[in-house]
Design a binder for these strands. Structure first.
Lengths: 218, 218
DNA sequence: CATTTTCTGTGATAATTGCAACAAAAGAGA
DNA sequence: TCTCTTTTGTTGCAATTATCACAGAAAATG
């Protein structure tokens, strides 16, 4: 499920034909550029081809809250997001990236010239959505933990389990970004990391972590 | 998108045939019964037919955190959820309900006897997933608000906008459940509601709410 | 390579939030 | 109808968390 793209099991020749059939367009964005704002009701399903971007929303006071990171083969767009009134949503490119836009109507209505790969593409879209659902459910699961320590440990244990063979693991985001992901103050999170280290529950150095007394390695 | 079910645009006769084709089974559950625990890697896509259920997870200390409510036509199952180790996941029926189980493999692999409605069903599944993504994104959006007041207002304004024609709106859940949804202490939430009323920002009585000084009605 | 920017790390203090406990009201069930 | 349970509403107090402020390390940029 991780190596899945919307074109999985679709040959290169078919892909080319599908571009017309689905009304697809590609567009490149420079680092720092705004890929999309979620206010235009322009309904298209967007797929990240290369690069990455971050969706965040800004409230009246200028507070910025991190919503999600978009990586290659992820889907995004208003179809998957109900924006809250009064908030501004910005999807900003974290690095140079290329995005595929698929016309929403071409997806929901059956292809007139019964394109044989239509159903394969929808199938892929469904599975990519399922993957996205997994990561959102995971984050909700973490965000609903009662305090910073539990949020941290929930995330760290999840990350550790992704690479079960090595004692150490290194986060693929900065501690600043981790605080955003956990939706807590960075300084408070640092304090909690310090406490966990003092209590000999974890060892850490920068983005590198290790669980000390882990019953997992028996 | 709200009236959508996995059988949308599929005739009753076709449905019957699809039961075999997709390896579907139906099962009834009494109120209070456990529909599913998310530890068995039994991969099937589940659809709520009638009734409702709540997915929550319990940690080692017995703390219970609310994950999501499942209503008719919603999809659920481990395909959409990465469980965290050490936590127990229980989907409990809130009322008598009936659930449809669809074999996962029948969904991801193309139907051998090229069933004409296969793609229609996947299409519906994709759209139902998109709807689920909307509601999860919404919740994350709310959970990442900085304090109780902002969480409350974000949710209340979202609810108000669902019925834009009436001044008042009534929550379809108890205030106790709302506190769970916002992942805050109920007493603290009540304190904040009281403050919002004293500051003449909202009026409320039980589950009935109204925004007082709303620039929305000009 | 020099400079700017971002990231990591820390502490004091204030603000927010959770907890425990209680009572009245409302609702469910027998 | 009466009882039992859940919900709403309210406190004081303790615990947690955010805010602010600062400094050195690391990384990015030209």
């Amino acid at each position: 499920m991780n190596g899945l793209s919307i074109f999985s099991s679709i040959s290169a020749e078919s892909r080319a034909r599908m571009y017309d059939c689905f009304g697809m367009t590609r567009k490149k964005f420079k680092k720092g550029q705004t890929v999309l704002t979620y206010c235009n009701s322009f309904k298209s399903v967007c797929v990240m081809i290369t690069g990455s971007a971050t969706l965040s929303c800004i409230d009246e006071d200028g507070n910025n809250s991190f919503l999600e990171k978009i990586y290659p083969n992820d889907v995004f767009g208003e179809l998957f997001c109900l924006p809250l009134a009064k908030l501004e949503y910005v999807l900003c490119a974290d690095e140079d990236c290329e995005v595929l836009f698929i016309d929403y109507n071409h997806i929901i209505t059956p292809c007139s010239n019964t394109c044989e790969h239509h159903s394969r593409l929808i199938n892929n879209l469904f599975l990519i959505s399922a993957r996205k659902l997994q990561s959102l459910t995971l984050r909700i699961n973490i965000l609903t933990q009662k305090n910073i320590r539990k949020k941290l440990l929930a995330y760290l244990e999840f990350r550790r389990n992704l690479s079960p063979d090595s004692r150490d693991f290194t986060l693929d985001m900065s501690l600043t970004d981790l605080a955003d992901y956990l939706s807590v103050d960075r300084a408070s999170m640092m304090r909690e990391i310090k406490a966990l280290k003092e209590e000999q529950i974890i060892w850490s150095e920068g983005r590198k972590f290790r669980f000390i007394n882990n019953d997992f390695y028996i």
